[in-house]
Design a protein around this nucleic acid. Structure first.
Lengths: 372, 372
DNA sequence: ATTAGCACTCATTTAAGTGGAGTGCTAATA
DNA sequence: TATTAGCACTCCACTTAAATGAGTGCTAAT
């Protein structure tokens, strides 16, 4: 009975540009695409009649039904229950997205326009990194209606660059520590006894001659105790400074992540039942959980800088009902960061990917680096 | 004292028997209390029979009904629909809370125990303010099952304390600016041409002699242009430094606010329908919206440092279906911050207030200041 | 290979029915 | 006079049943 269907399935490669198992004949592909697009809009299972009417294939619903039956057998679509329409499976989405990323390579046009307004807003206040990123996350969220996250570029500061003690008040010192990548930390140090300028100068010289340019892994206990010894009665200060140095290193372990538009998930019924919503909101609040995502993307880099995780593909388990699209951007000193958009499976992949692509290139440009 | 808020809330004498509102006869008070307590637990309207059975008043349901009828007329309770039990009105909650805050003044005991574990965890990593506050918010949320927020102490830095330029690399300067209250900002300044040590020293002297100890309002354009003039060819650097100074001031306009447990709202059905949840989550994400709350509490200070906003009383409109309990704490230099707990109207006021009280005093203690 | 037609499935909607929690009122009681 | 028992009534929440309709699979005809 299903002989002819199976025949098609097996002979997939006969036609046209046959390569790989994934090729479907042109018509099936069109139908699948139509199904997905329709589902992206409505969020409802889509039936054969809908496709037959709203597509230029001029096929009757019956024919569509046959094709859909095949598509289901191939695992690209799913029937939620016996007499419902079909919805795309993760595999279906995946095909769709892959297809799209091939086709759409060139049309940055429309998205560019949309991002332009972002860019102008961004440039308005050439501020410090933090506020730029925060703002960017916010605008992305507003523009896409999905939840967004953006991680600050991860600096691997493994060298100390500069240490300085300055007197604030009689018994208070300010220690400024700068590591490679311009990671800066300030600490206040309280003193028992006042310290004269000369002593401070000496300490500064001591610290800088010994530590400047030093890879952190070379700062060990032996080294520290040697310093203390040389500092004499001021060894307490050395201790505090070294604590601060440790902080600088530790700081870059937990990446800064900014999020926005978490409440957008309420726009998609499939995500907003209490259970799921609660988990997702929590994930966004405990940004720590998002670091997995960042780490994941940085590891998965596939050349394009764009990654698409569909449903269970995502590294963060609480997002198994979502799709996640990420872009990694890279700043001057080889510091990489991640932008992520989190939405329902039926995300507008086209728009999102294009937006991210453009944004990424803009970001690269802003920071004087063009890697396209 | 804190009860005076609603003391003369109209409706003073609808009935002959009505005297001042606060002296409801003892029995009515007991019944009201019973109703509220029951409602706090169940979240369901409570009927006369329930009260009659689970209270030691030994009254029949009929009697209770009569009393409830009176209480409703007085505005302390509400009937959601004709034949339902009663739920407390905002006014009812208000009375209950005021009453409680009088009674419970002395019993810090139990709550103290609960908070102790927090304290020990807190002290474990005597870190910088930020992480302490974050952690505190988190623990509060975990302990209470409500959403929490905590604002970093608001520093009113109106005097510059210290400015320093240091050379990082040949064409890169680090500017460190410290304002009163030890608000620190670092900025990198890129140079066209290398700068020799002598020039840097001069600039440092110039900046410090002119700006140290200066109230920010005295830093005007005239002052700046005078500085530029004196700096000669280095006027560009002065500009950048002054920009950074402006940043320091501006920074303390938008207060840092840390939140946690936003997803706790999903534990209370009355808050977790999509509409409300979305708004609330948004409020927590756009922490800026919470500043109103902080400002509000700092303004409303009533001596105890604890404030309770019930329903529409809260300054943040998106929280009109919530109750908010806040405590203001004060650190050494007169810097005040706010801790807030946001939950449903039927919040466990008793526990929350006690927890906040204890936490507040702990906080005060940790920072060497006891203001009880 | 495609299509029309038909019987069937099943989630969703609508209507009607039921139980029960809770009230207000009245009359009886202490 | 204050309290209580009793009763009729209200109305929500829940269940059940029927109607709806979108969608399918299969078969026979084109």
């Amino acid at each position: 009975m299903s002989a002819n269907k199976n025949q098609k399935d097996n002979s997939a490669g006969l036609r046209g540009k046959g390569r790989g198992i994934l090729d479907l004949d042109e018509r099936k592909l069109k139908i699948l695409k139509a199904i997905i697009q329709n589902y992206l809009e409505t969020g409802e299972p889509v039936g054969s009649r809908t496709i037959s009417k709203y597509t230029d294939l001029n096929l009757s619903s019956a024919t569509i039904r046959n094709e859909m039956s095949d598509l289901e057998e191939l695992g690209f679509i799913i029937q939620p229950h016996t007499s419902a329409g079909r919805i795309p499976s993760d595999k279906g989405y995946r095909l769709y997205v892959d297809q799209m990323m091939l086709e759409k390579e060139e049309q940055l046009n429309q998205a560019t326009r949309e991002v332009k307004e972002m860019q102008s807003m961004l440039l308005e206040r050439e501020d410090k990194m933090e506020s730029i990123l925060k703002q960017m996350a916010k605008m992305l969220a507003a523009n896409t209606n999905y939840a967004t996250m953006i991680s600050a570029p991860q600096v691997k500061s493994n060298k100390l660059k500069f240490i300085q003690l300055s007197r604030m008040e009689a018994t208070q010192l300010l220690a400024t520590i700068v590591a490679e990548g311009n990671v800066i930390k300030n600490t206040m140090i309280s003193l028992e006894e006042p310290l004269d300028d000369e002593a401070i100068l000496k300490l500064n010289i001591l610290l800088n001659t010994n530590l400047n340019g030093l890879p952190v892994e070379e700062i060990n206990l032996a080294m520290i105790s040697k310093l203390k010894q040389q500092a004499g009665i001021y060894d307490g200060i050395i201790s505090e400074v070294m604590d601060a140095v440790a902080e600088v290193i530790k700081d870059d372990e937990n990446i800064e992540i900014y999020t926005s538009g978490a409440n957008n998930i309420f726009k998609y019924p499939e995500l907003s039942d209490n259970q799921r919503a609660s988990e997702l909101i929590n994930t966004f609040e405990e940004k720590q959980l998002l670091t997995e995502l960042v780490q994941g993307t940085l590891a998965d880099d596939n050349g394009t800088g764009i990654q698409v995780y569909i449903g269970s593909e995502t590294p963060v388990k609480t997002m198994k009902d979502c799709s996640v699209v990420t872009a990694t951007y890279e700043l001057e000193e080889g510091m990489k960061g991640t932008i992520g958009i989190i939405g329902p499976r039926r995300m507008d992949y086209d728009k999102v990917i294009n937006t991210l692509k453009t944004l990424k290139s803009q970001l690269d440009t802003i920071y004087k680096k063009d890697d396209r």
